[in-house]
Design a protein around this nucleic acid. Structure first.
Lengths: 337, 337
DNA sequence: CACTGGCACTCGAGGGATCCGAGTGCTAAA
DNA sequence: TTTAGCACTCGGATCCCTCGAGTGCCAGTG
């Protein structure tokens, strides 16, 4: 691929993102110092169009990047833009004052929305790769107990359990001790193996209770692994001009489906941490004019969940990628503590 | 106020809500059987306009209700529309299968959005009027413990506490027992009194730990009383025609401010359970063309939190009010269990 | 006194017709 | 390979006109 043609594509993407208007050969020659005439650029643009990187909305208008064009831009041209010192400071101030996990998630999502001027998505740390710090059982009623599982990421899951038998304090004490002995320190994925032997060891009188509690525990760690997602900045959707705002209905609908959100966040591309999916690359209906930038995060450089940003395909990729990466790193550092 | 003039206003509101277009005297005479001519209606409309209930967008257009007009409609004209059997069934099916409090809230918000085709808001049960079921303290690190407070509504609050002294199992056991003895069964508002005597009774060695845990406990019950709100159905904002969609930016912004949401939900009007705030009656910037319908809910007929719906002032008030009330009642019934 | 029919008037929406200019592709020359 | 020139296209803006729903007012009627 010709060096100058890449430059031309870069210029088209940047100008289009900045002005929201199709860019023509003349403007291009004026604003950038290519050292060649607009006629030459026209030739290059014709070739770019032939190869499918740009397209003209109609005959007498300039060119607009296609999804393929953005893809090439992201893959081969764009340099991830590092944050400004002011922005870095903002991250610190914003996140360091958080008081608990919920608060961290809330603040992260706001921060990300503010930095990128787009819709921010933050997934709670997944249980899969985290470990169990403590299991607590509390009697609520004669035949009902509350099961609380505390992960070492600070996340807490609770479920009520109906017991087939009357619950005594003695039974609770016994079961609590056995459970904690069995699972504390284990990873969530290995809980199922770890509790295998618990029923057998439990005194026969408590066994029905133990069985139902264990069943619920397994459900909790297996089924509800990656449940919660926080979203923010939806108001930013209106800031991209009418053409995008009008396609906003489907976008908002998609964003309300947790399943969809999870798919968006979790479909990670290569081993490269920063993933960008552009337009039709999202196989979600309604997001054909949207792009998603995601990355993993987690304590100690391992990825336990994802964060990301959604906006129009016509977005500032270098800046967005920089913000997402920076926030993810800082978030990981906070969770490491 | 003349009987027929009220009828005319009703017809104008209903037609305008249905068609989204200013209604003129002719249409009105055709569609409804007033038994009088359009000229008579014109006179009535002129009076209604003089009194500020309706207004003409421009000379040669029909009339549109003002906020004051909607207000009169809601106060004196509208009959709350009961749900259809199918809708009732939907509520049951939707809410009965919920597995925990989070799930109940999630499902409620979806349900409400679906029933009303608007933005639904659901506040978690407030702690203020609920009682403490259990307090749990778990050691996380030598100098850090996790405090978990379980309310009798099933809501769970957790906070980490930094301890000034090394935390021993013995200290935890002691403190846990004392705390639970002091506060279990008490309402959240009386917790502060209930724990007064705890530090004095605590062995001197544990007292610094007790102090910091207590401080956090009080913070939790006092400060974070009415924290969480779930929202859904924002995509419905796009379904009301362009004129409303274009004012959507400010609306979405308002909806992202938790403080604003809380204000919206909590500013209850009279003792009457169903509160409607129309247009400028919401002193929130950006909601001048929106209306909010809220009501309280809670177990055993007492109101511990609020739910509501937000949409354009041009909304189906009778239907919306019916849905909100029905969902609130059923939600209360579920929480009573 | 309330209602009605008639009438002149207003004014926004919609439908051409026209113009303008940014942008294009092509060709021939440097 | 690049450039200058040129004919051509076509969407957007502007203006103008018509159309019709809707209004207010007035004089007449039961």
């Amino acid at each position: 691929m010709d060096e100058r043609k890449l430059d031309v594509l870069r210029a088209i993407v940047e100008d289009y993102v900045a002005t929201r208007e199709p860019v023509g050969s003349k403007m291009l020659a004026e604003r950038h110092n290519f050292g060649v005439s607009s006629a030459t650029l026209r030739n290059d643009m014709a070739m770019l169009e032939e190869e499918g990187y740009i397209v003209a909305p109609h005959t007498s208008a300039g060119r607009v990047p296609t999804d393929k064009g953005y893809r090439l831009f992201v893959d081969r041209i764009a340099q991830i833009k590092p944050l400004s010192p002011a922005e870095r400071r903002a991250i610190h101030q914003f996140l360091d004052t958080a008081i608990d996990l919920d608060d961290v998630m809330q603040r992260t999502v706001r921060l990300l929305a503010q930095l990128t001027h787009q819709v921010a998505l933050v997934q709670y740390p997944t249980l899969t790769r985290s470990g169990v710090r403590h299991v607590e059982i509390v009697g609520l009623a004669p035949r009902r107990v509350l099961l609380v599982v505390i992960a070492d990421t600070g996340r807490v899951e609770q479920r009520t359990v109906e017991s087939p038998i009357e619950v005594t304090d003695e039974a609770l004490l016994d079961l609590r001790a056995r459970l904690n002995a069995a699972v504390v320190g284990k990873s969530f994925t290995s809980v199922s193996d770890a509790v295998d032997s618990v029923p057998a060891q439990t005194p026969a009188a408590f066994r029905p209770l133990a069985a139902s509690v264990l069943a619920t525990l397994l459900e909790t760690v297996v089924e509800r692994q990656e449940n919660r997602i926080v979203m923010g900045g939806t108001a930013n959707l209106t800031r991209f001009g009418e053409d995008y705002s009008l396609t906003m209905g489907p976008v908002l609908e998609a964003l309300e489906e947790h399943v969809v959100l999870l798919r968006l966040l979790q479909e990670v591309g290569s081993q490269d941490d920063l993933t960008v999916r552009i337009g039709s690359e999202n196989d979600v209906v309604g997001l054909s004019t949207s792009a998603v930038v995601t990355t993993g995060y987690g304590p100690h450089q391992q990825s336990v969940a994802h964060i990301g940003v959604l906006g129009p395909t016509r977005m500032d990729y270098p800046g967005t990628m920089g913000s997402v990466r920076a926030v993810a790193r800082y978030l990981g550092r906070i969770l490491s503590q």
